[in-house]
Amino acid sequence: MELLNAFVVLSNFVLIPAIAYGSQLALGALGVTLIYGILRFSNFAHGDTMAFGTMVVVLVTWLFQSWGINLGPLPTALLALPFGIAGCAALVLLTDRMVYRFYRVQKAKPVILVIVSMGVMFIMNGLVRFIIGPDDQQFADGERFIVSVRTFKKLTGLDEGLAIRTTQGITVVTAVIVVAVLFWFLNRTRTGKSMRAYSDNEDLALLSGINPERVVLYTWLIVAALATVAGTLYGLDKTFKPFTFFQLLLPIFAAAIVGGLGSPLGAIAGGFVIAFSEVTVTYAWKKVLGYALPEGLEPTGLVQLLSTDYKFAVSFVILLVVLLFRPTGLFKGKSV
């Protein structure tokens, strides 16, 4: 019973939040890794791309809410998601047409594109703040919990409760679907394979008759979808604030690099590695250990390894350790 309680507490405060957060990071890192693999640069504007897509979702959600349209127990945002993806796709395609394409024609070195993406980051950041403002926005609605603490306790008769929020459930389910579709697309379809081929060897792809502009177009479309989904899930689970999304850049980059930049599988693994380490290291283990350890050995302190404010530090230290021992990340060689 004691161990079961310990496990319930662990699930409630560590496993479930980390899985949800890991899914969000993984989706974000997938976008970064796709751009890195195919356009060959790290997109500093990715956090703000996520913010923009999410902003559209928030606005459409509000519109639907004002019309009285909803999904019952599910958040209305899911209904608004396609509009967000479309809006985000329009923005990134416009950006590509007006900004990035010029540099492709010039055969610009990727590092120039990195600097260009800084400019895009400023613009998108300004745009989002301009439209929706810099403050927190609430847009989650519907049922709050799939399983609430009280129901769980009643069902199991345990001392400790377990809550699964709707947003957490939706996050995991959506992430699994999105990742499955993405992998099917990349590995099974002609277009997906041509994207991988282009990422691997541009010249040979050209010689094989693969049209780079088409590859780039598909890449941006996928990235827009991934960014919007990741941003919306994060926003539902936590909150939507433009600056927070900008700050997500570090854990997302860390996840992509830990997994091995350019590797979709790595991005997912990296997302979960970062999320789990952030949550476990900043969690106060007192309660779990109190149940798990025999009488008399219970800890007196909080047993928190680091304060929550250091979660960035955790992603970073993991990143450094991985880079020191495996400079190419956990999954190397398998490029997009």
Binding site: S42, K107, P110, D203, L206
Partner: peptide, 13 residues
């Protein structure tokens, strides 16, 4: 810097 740009595979043609 491998953390921002992908080495190799770029068009040299």
């Amino acid at each position: 810097d491998a953390s921002i740009t992908k080495p190799g595979g770029q068009s040299r043609m």
